[in-house]
Every structure is written in structure tokens, then in C-alpha cells.
Design a binder for these strands. Structure first.
Lengths: 249, 249
DNA sequence: AAGAGCGTACCGCTGAGCGGAACGCCGATG
DNA sequence: CATCGGCGTTCCGCTCAGCGGTACGCTCTT
């Protein structure tokens, strides 16, 4: 999967060895995960510390602030985030539920940001994290507007059953996607996480066909009725769409 | 400044050649900024593309989504961001002005996040960006609680005059910092950007001495009266402080 | 006391990385 | 239309940065 034969490859193998949940990893753990020789990991990790991509603590290594800073220079994601923020705020203020902004990356959703209050539903999504497309509202929206082949690739591939409600039948899923194109929204009902509901709408280019990103509102089963936020989400997404069209790209 | 003799050094020189404002840089520009041989930049940039840290476009290279994703795995910043979000939301909802969360990194402030609505004052701060400490409310708070030597280092060093209001007299600045410790807030009045006012408060560890981060509210001269948000900012920062103390680190 | 697992240090071999040079392609200039 | 400067790309032989097996010393656990 990764190219472990070049210095850069090794360096990245080490950096990517950190999962979203990991905070500090000891050298030995990095060796295990990267499957690189111990000496090598030691040296490269040392270099990475020197370059401010890793911090060295008493208990091991940790991704450093330098990396955080660098990552936020990525132009497209950052611009999207900055332009979207006001709309996401509006949406949050109107709903007081967890609001997500995500884009498609390969066959998964990547969360650009996640905003919420104290009462937010405990979702597994994390800023900068990934989730499968077939079991999230955000993912379904992004998939619905993705290219034919992209869509087919995901539907054909194995669809992980995350909860009893996860839709793993390609047929049903395909129908949901078709309906998403018609209505302009997608739903998730406890398909990725028990107890969670979600509505999402696409942020489109002016052509009305290409997705740039998607916005969603998530809440817990019980007090939360996703249908009642359908219009708000759609409006926010549409508004962001036109803003993007107006300014630069 | 940078170590250009190792592969990693070159790679980082290239990545860091992208300023906060740059979106796409052509090869030639990278060569100019990094002062590396053309052939070398070409090759390394190619490798970086292969490793999903750069995107190659028709007009040059661009920091890619892979980097964004990686950066957001940095544990400390991300945890801080996640735990802070609800408090920042509250603060925004109460004030409807631009809200910042920042930490100290070296002799500057790094913005972890920035949230605001449509009417937000056009501040130069950007998520992931840097600003000097001596002319921002966030910076003054962070500096006030930083170690003696750290504080001295900044005050001794050259203090850039950003606007006619920038305080560049170490004496006055030191008094402001002292006062910040007493009152628990710092102000900025058009010291970094004309037309902008700002209040900030420290997020402290339980010991009440060590700063972890700082929160601020920014608004435009005219409608915005920073004093009236002093309590709200202080409350938000304090609340975040206790939350951090409770959970994990 | 023995052992397992860790982080660190050493060091000689070698091919990955290096970068100067040359090329072909524009678009600006005269 | 000819020239030229700046661009991105490719090539290739030299060499030293990177490599990783080995060994050591430390701290826990058994």
C-alpha cells in the first residue's frame, strides 16, 4: 500500500501510523505498525522531530503542532472551510445540533469540520477523520453526485455492516442515491452509529451536477427529527454553493 | 534556517515554501523560494505528489488534502479544538462576533480555529495562521502567562509596528501584561489591523498559572465595544479550562 | 536472578538521491 | 518572422546519505 523504500515513504509511513485516536505512540509501536526495522524508525522519527512534524515525549512520539499548521495551509480545504463557516454557524444556530462539512476523498468522506454545542450527540465523526460513504448522510450525498464509475465502484465493493440498520444491499442503496438526486437531500438513520440520525445536502457547482462538498445536521434518536431540518440544510448548502461560485473557485 | 541537506529537509522546504496565502505555486517559484536546484525540486515535488502531500495542477503544485488530513491528526491541537468547540459556539451565539482560539508557538500566536458569521470583521487572522504576540489580544494573554524568559525574549526583540496604534514600547507592553494577569483579560485596539478591536482571556491549567490556550472575541470599531464582552470571554475561557482539567490532559 | 521488551548507539556497505546539463516548448519582444 | 528568456521535463554518472543488522544498557515483570 505504501512505498517504504524511499526516505519519504518511511517518514510518511511513520506519520500515518498515527490513527485518528492515537495521541502518543512509543517507538516500539511505530516499529510494529510500520513494519520497518527498529534502527530505521528510530532515526527517521528523530529526523521528523527535528523538522517539527513529531514531538518527542517521555512516553513516545506525538504528531506535532508544526504538522497541524502545515495541514491547514492546504488551500482548497482551508478556503472551503473559511467560506463555509458563516453558513455552518447559521445552521447550528437554527438547529443547535451537530453540523458537519465534508468532502469526498477516494471512497470515503473526510470531515473538514464539525461544530456542535455541549449537548451534541456523541458521533464517531472527527474533524479530519474519515467515514465510509454508504452509511452516512454526507457520504450518500457525495456518492449520489459522484461519477457513475465512482458510484459503481463503491456499490460493488464490500459494504461494511456497521449497525443492524446499515444498508448493505447495493440495490436499495442505488435507489436511495437516485432519490437523493431528485430531492437534494440524503438521510441516515442509525446506519453508521446506533442512536444517530442525520440529514445532508450537497454543495454544488453552478452547473448543478458537480459536488464540491456536503453539509449535514446530526442528532440523536428521540428529540431529533431530521426531516424538520431538511430545508435548513438544503438552504445552507445551496447558499454556500453560490458563494463558492462567486468567489474564486 | 532549514536543513536542506537531507531528503526530508528538502521536502519540508518545499512544503513550507507555501505561505498562508498561496494556493498554487509553479515549479519555478518553488525553486526560487527554496533555493534548491531545479532538478531536485522537480523530483522531490514529484515524490510528494506521489505521497499525496502535494497536488499537481496545470498551473503548478498545491498542498493537498492528504496533508490537511494528516495535520488534523495532531493530537493536542485537535483535542483542544474538539473540547473547545462548544464553548466557542456559546460565545459566538452570545456575541455574534468573530471568535478565535489560539495557542503560543515559539514567539507567535497560532490560530487553532476562527469562527464567525457573515458580518464578521475582516481580520487578517486565519485558521492555522500566525500573528505576532505583541499586537494581538490573544498574543498578549499568552505572553502574559508565558515564562519570564519567554516574555523578556519577545519584549527585547524587535517589535514590528503594524499600525499607528501598535504598542512597540517594551515598558508600556510590560505594564499591559502585568495588568492582564490582574484582570484576566487583554485588549487590542487597532494594534494589528486598523479598525479592529479585540478582547482575549486565558485558558489556564488548574494551577492558575500555566496557559494552555486563549480565547478572543474580535469586532470592528464602531458597533463593537470589547469591554462589554469581557465577562463572556473570561467565562468561556475559564469553563474550557476546567473541562480540560477534568478530561485527559 | 533471569528474562522480556524497551530505547539507544554503532558502523561498514551500497544504491537512492543528487544536481548539472541539455532539451523542447511556449509567449513575449523587436 | 526570428529571437530570446523562462518554463517544465528528462537524462545520467558520481557519491555520500541512508540503511539496518547487531549489540548494549535500562526498566519492568515474573
Amino acid at each position: 500500500m505504501e512505498d517504504r523504500d524511499t526516505v519519504l515513504g518511511k517518514a510518511l509511513a511513520i506519520l500515518r501510523a498515527f490513527g485518528p485516536a492515537d495521541s502518543v505512540l512509543p517507538l516500539a509501536e511505530l516499529v510494529r505498525r510500520t513494519e520497518l526495522p527498529k534502527g530505521t524508525v528510530h532515526r527517521v522519527a528523530g529526523d521528523l522531530v527535528h523538522h517539527r512534524l513529531l514531538d518527542k515525549t517521555a512516553h513516545g512520539y506525538r504528531l506535532s503542532g508544526g504538522l497541524f499548521e502545515l495541514g491547514l495551509r492546504a488551500a482548497t480545504e482551508r478556503t472551503l472551510l473559511e467560506l463555509a463557516m458563516p453558513f455552518l454557524q447559521d445552521l447550528y444556530e437554527r438547529t443547535h445540533e451537530t453540523v458537519h462539512l465534508g468532502v469526498r476523498e477516494g471512497h470515503e468522506v473526510v470531515y473538514i469540520t464539525k461544530i456542535g454545542g455541549h449537548r451534541q450527540a456523541k458521533a464517531p465523526s472527527r474533524t479530519g477523520g474519515r467515514m465510509p460513504m454508504h452509511c452516512t448522510a454526507l457520504g450518500k450525498v457525495l456518492l449520489a453526485y459522484a461519477g457513475e464509475d465512482e458510484q459503481a465502484a463503491v456499490l460493488t465493493g464490500p459494504l461494511e455492516r456497521r449497525t443492524p440498520h446499515t444498508v448493505i444491499a447495493p440495490g436499495i442503496l442505488r435507489r436511495q442515491l437516485a432519490r437523493t438526486i431528485e430531492t437534494g437531500v440524503a438521510y441516515e438513520r442509525e446506519e453508521s452509529t446506533p442512536g444517530l440520525l442525520c440529514v445532508a445536502a450537497p454543495v454544488l457547482k453552478p452547473d448543478g451536477r458537480t459536488v464540491v462538498a456536503a453539509i449535514s445536521v446530526t442528532g440523536p434518536v428521540g428529540r431529533f427529527r431530521p426531516e424538520s431540518h431538511e430545508t435548513a440544510v438544503r438552504a445552507a448548502a445551496a447558499a454556500l454553493g453560490s458563494t463558492l461560485a462567486r468567489r474564486g473557485r
